[in-house]
Simulated scan of single mutants.
Amino acid sequence: MTTDQSVVRGPDDDVPPDDFTAFLSLLNELKATGCSLLVVGDAPRELFTRASSNLLGDAESIRHRVVAATDATSDSIAERLPNPDETPRPLSETARILNHAGAPRSVAAEATDVSGDLGGIRETRIADPELQGLQAGLVDAIGDVATEASDLRPADLRVGVDSLGPLVDHYGEDAVRRCLRRVGGHVRHYNGMAHYVLAEEYDSEVVESFLPDVDAVIELRAVDPVEHDHDAQQRWHVPDRELVTEWTPL
């Protein structure tokens, strides 16, 4: 399911009509009023990149994207952004990348600097090793977007953080939750959409600890492409509404 679709794979979902209608209504509500989403699952890294790309928006509409990397590679950052030849405005004008250089590399062992071919997109390397540095960088970037794009419409602002794993390991769940609340408040102020990657199973304790601070959770899993005619699935959880979709193709 991509949040830029007004109809979300309805004929193929096998979701009960009432539940599916409730989900579509909620999705439209989240897009209109702003939201924070958690992307989780015991899934290959590539699936998180794919899901993040969907959540950052398609190439046809003007979106203002802020992507913060804590353990994502430069290639995966580039892969989640649309083709610059297809966007109505240059990505160098509408996208920003934050590189949390202070994230402990002993924790993010596979991380590399975000320095790939990103088409002139502005990159801010955050020198402050504390979580406050990343939080301030995200808030500042959101404010810059609002200043430069004075006509922001609902869902025009898209924020992504990949991933929360190193932050939780180094700073603890409580500190990361406070950060998400602060950043999420700014995203909602501009009716934007934020998503945070956390490569943990939905039923894990760490995911459960973040549920009060997000509006919905997107769970990912890999599947046999021969059996399913696709290689990945997702389902949405909205604990406050006791709403869970069926598994659908990613």
Results as ranks from 00 to 15, higher is better:
198 L>F: 05
122 R>L: 11
65 R>F: 13
184 G>C: 06
55 L>K: 09
216 A>C: 13
150 S>F: 08
146 A>I: 12
4 D>C: 13
156 D>Y: 09
151 D>N: 15
195 H>L: 01
1 M>G: 12
100 H>A: 13
121 I>R: 02
212 P>H: 07
28 N>D: 14
127 A>P: 00
180 L>A: 03
225 P>D: 04
71 D>S: 14
84 P>H: 06
159 V>R: 04
86 E>W: 09
68 A>H: 07
41 G>T: 05
241 R>T: 03
107 V>W: 01
125 R>T: 12
46 E>Q: 15
148 E>N: 13
45 R>D: 13
60 E>Q: 12
207 V>H: 03
62 I>E: 08
171 Y>R: 08
70 T>D: 05
160 G>L: 12
20 F>Q: 13
71 D>Y: 06
132 Q>K: 12
87 T>G: 05
232 A>I: 10
20 F>G: 10
38 L>V: 11
230 H>Y: 15
124 T>I: 04
21 T>K: 10
126 I>Q: 05
108 A>I: 10
43 A>Y: 00
101 A>E: 11
13 D>K: 09
51 A>Y: 05
25 S>A: 11
72 A>Y: 01
191 N>M: 11
182 R>A: 11
246 E>S: 10
88 P>A: 07
152 L>R: 13
36 S>K: 08
241 R>D: 10
2 T>S: 13
180 L>T: 02
214 V>P: 08
201 E>F: 00
129 P>V: 05
215 D>Q: 02
146 A>Q: 14
250 L>T: 04
193 M>G: 01
112 T>N: 03
55 L>D: 09
175 A>C: 06
110 E>A: 14
95 A>S: 15
61 S>R: 14
123 E>H: 13
91 L>F: 10
233 Q>A: 12
171 Y>S: 06
58 D>Q: 01
105 R>P: 11
53 S>P: 03
62 I>Y: 00
190 Y>P: 04
62 I>A: 07
37 L>D: 01
111 A>Y: 07
124 T>Y: 05
106 S>F: 11
134 L>I: 12
37 L>T: 06
84 P>M: 08
81 L>T: 00
75 D>Q: 11
120 G>W: 04
50 R>H: 04
199 A>T: 08
79 E>W: 03
51 A>G: 02
128 D>S: 12
237 H>L: 10
105 R>N: 07
173 E>R: 14
233 Q>N: 03
126 I>R: 03
16 P>T: 01
140 D>P: 00
131 L>D: 05
186 H>P: 00
120 G>P: 08
197 V>W: 05
203 D>G: 15
144 D>N: 09
182 R>S: 10
211 L>G: 01
9 R>I: 08
159 V>C: 03
244 V>C: 11
177 R>I: 12
11 P>T: 08
10 G>H: 05
202 Y>E: 02
76 S>R: 09
138 L>C: 00
209 S>G: 09
65 R>Q: 11
239 P>Q: 10
206 V>Y: 06
196 Y>P: 01
18 D>T: 12
122 R>C: 02
182 R>N: 07
128 D>A: 11
185 G>V: 07
64 H>G: 00
34 G>K: 12
187 V>T: 08
208 E>Q: 14
77 I>H: 00
249 P>W: 10
82 P>Q: 04
155 A>G: 09
152 L>A: 06
54 N>E: 15
142 I>V: 06
188 R>N: 08
181 R>G: 08
34 G>H: 09
85 D>V: 02
